[in-house]
């Protein structure tokens, strides 16, 4: 795979990652309640720890998958892994279909695929954050809630970064990890620009149809590009 092909896959993976809605939704509720209970300064400090939680999760996931990838390829060079890329392409295709039908629930809000029990639990946690460690844990564990969509994206990011042979890989890895925080940072910027929960949610409802198509389309593009390239050789 050429540098530009790997880079374009990495960019697409980052864009899909940044389009996922669970973490920004929880952040939006969490920040609304935090600024309702505490001063703006304290709420900002909690928001920073939420962001750190999200980034820590992304870093741990990326490094874990990277180390598993390396240990498999370097310790067992004779292992037959030809089927692995095709499985990954199949999974992205399946996720494209699943995300189109099930990512958003059929309702007039922005309800997601999560079970209602888990959603209620996350809402309760988001409303009752008091300390920095609570905010950090909320950011970390909220990211886990979307693992079904995140995991293949992390794997693809690792694989595409691994194709960069003559250039340093760490800046690209860092950019991918930072990309997962873009939605949270944009919601935070909106709060600081004077928007409130109601206004942001109204915008999200407006954008729901857009995301309903963009997320599956991203996965579909990813699947087709992997299939058409004969999957990273």
């Amino acid at each position: 795979m050429s540098f530009f092909t790997s880079l374009s896959i990495l960019i697409l993976v980052s864009l899909i990652q940044a389009s996922l809605q669970l973490v920004p939704s929880i952040f939006m509720i969490f920040y609304h309640y935090a600024s309702g209970k505490k001063s703006r300064k304290n709420a900002d400090s909690l928001a920073l720890f939420f962001l750190l939680g999200v980034e820590t999760f992304a870093t741990i996931m990326f490094l874990s998958i990277y180390s598993i990838y390396y240990s498999v390829f370097f310790n067992f060079p004779s292992i037959e892994l030809k089927i692995f890329p095709w499985v990954l392409a199949g999974i992205t295709l399946a996720l494209s279909i699943v995300s189109f039908f099930f990512y958003f629930r059929k309702s007039n809000g922005t309800e997601l695929f999560l079970s209602r029990k888990l959603a209620k639990n996350l809402l309760f946690r988001a409303k009752s954050v008091k300390t920095r460690s609570d905010a950090f844990a909320l950011g970390f564990f909220t990211s886990i809630g979307e693992l079904i969509f995140n995991l293949p994206l992390f794997v693809l990011a690792v694989v595409s970064i691994n194709q960069f042979n003559d250039i340093p890989r760490s800046p690209f890895a860092s950019l991918f990890i930072i990309a997962s925080a873009i939605p949270v940072i944009s919601i935070f910027a909106m709060y600081h620009a004077g928007y409130n929960l109601a206004e942001i949610e109204r915008r999200r409802i407006k954008d729901k149809t857009f995301f309903r198509f963009v997320i599956p389309l991203g996965f579909l593009l990813l699947a087709f590009s992997l299939f058409s390239m004969g999957v990273f050789k």
């Binding site: 809000g109 922005t110 109601a198």
Partner: peptide, 15 residues
């Protein structure tokens, strides 16, 4: 306040 009314209207429908 319309925003407050909206917040209570969409309660539990955000995620």
């Amino acid at each position: 306040n319309k925003d407050l009314a909206y917040v209570y209207k969409i309660r539990g429908k955000i995620i």
